[in-house]
Write a protein that binds this DNA or RNA. Structure first.
Lengths: 142, 142
DNA sequence: CTAGGTGCAAAAGGTTTGCGGTTAA
DNA sequence: TTAACCGCAAACCTTTTGCACCTAG
């Protein structure tokens, strides 16, 4: 089971001006154990298993803090709830129009994107590439 | 003022199995007149100016139909309301972390992205690239 | 003629806020 | 010591739904 060192997480939080708390550690641990892309509500339910008193407001607070210190990505794919992803490697998300599943797709082909030249003055801090279409399973079924 | 030919819109709708209605024409016309990226609520308010009885439910219905026939993009940038964009040219969205404004950025540098190779079986129908950071104005102010 | 679309109003879903108490630094 | 964080519950904002009526094809 993955779990970031407490000291390391503490440092990352402190660097962005956040305090270290047991809730933030736990929410991050929950995320690190996921392959899917859970919503805040799903993180909340999993977090409660080991920390029954945690509240949904705190989960949002923790997720926001983790996003702001660059440990977690917020993924907005449709009009529904936002999803959270602890994979900070450069990758993109593929969302199937049929079944709604979200796939993390790692690739080396992002070089082209890395070299996108922005008009003067824009300062890039983050990019998110999301694709839609049919996943292999749904594509073969239809 | 931009306005798609009724016949042409009718055809696009019919091709995807939708009926032509005055509301769909009007919602599309409203979108074509925007440079910003209005939310459904904003589209609703602008649409009411010339069609006072249109309802918010109908606006959602029209937007969904237009998205499904490939005339409009739905843009999900954060946890707030979805935004709608009638620019179907290949471009990306830059959202400023400071002021929240959304910029359409056209570029020829998307070639790299066009050539992204998906793992076997995935069928791509749409891609969306969203960038975050600071816009020129906020970058120079901070 | 009738399946699909509309307007309305209520419900559902997702996120934020205010407050009194707690805690990391 | 104290600003930041917590849990709780209510409020808020966005989107969906159900229903009776209407209309494009």
């Amino acid at each position: 089971m993955q779990r970031m060192e407490t000291n390391q997480l503490n440092l990352r939080l402190a660097t962005s001006g956040f305090r270290f708390t047991a809730q933030r550690q736990h929410v991050y641990d929950v995320l690190l154990q996921t392959q899917d892309h859970p919503t805040a509500e799903e993180v909340f339910m999993r977090a409660k298993q080991n920390m029954p008193d945690i509240s949904i407001a705190t989960v949002y607070n923790c997720l926001d803090a983790l996003v702001k210190c660059g440990l977690v990505r917020q993924v907005n794919l449709d009009r529904g709830a936002a999803r959270y992803c602890p994979n900070m490697k450069d990758h993109f998300h593929f969302c199937c129009d049929e079944c709604g599943k979200v796939f993390d797709i790692d690739t080396k082909d992002l070089d082209g994107v890395s070299q996108i030249s922005l008009p003067g003055g824009f300062k890039l801090t983050q990019r998110e590439i999301s694709l839609r279409g049919l996943c292999p399973e749904c594509a073969s079924r239809l």
